[in-house]
Amino acid sequence: MAKIRGSIVVNIEKCKGCEVCMVTCPTGTIAMAKEVNGKGYNYAFPANPDLCIGCANCAMVCPDGVITVYKTKI
């Protein structure tokens, strides 16, 4: 059976660390970085990239449009 795999790209300099994407992610792919970006925010990043299914929920709720989503069948 084909498995759906996803991947996200986060523009971390524009991320404001609101955590809304992290809460929305159904698979626990996203976590907040311990480091801060240039604006002082703990940015979101794909901490568990293998879990991503490319559902794009994170990108849809991101107020700052910093997430790009890719998806493929393996």
């Binding site: 790209v9 300099e13 970006n37 990239p49």
Partner: peptide, 12 residues
């Protein structure tokens, strides 16, 4: 642009 990416092979 500073980015943090997931699995690179899927990013096409």
């Amino acid at each position: 642009m500073v980015e943090f990416s997931g699995i690179k092979e899927i990013i096409k």
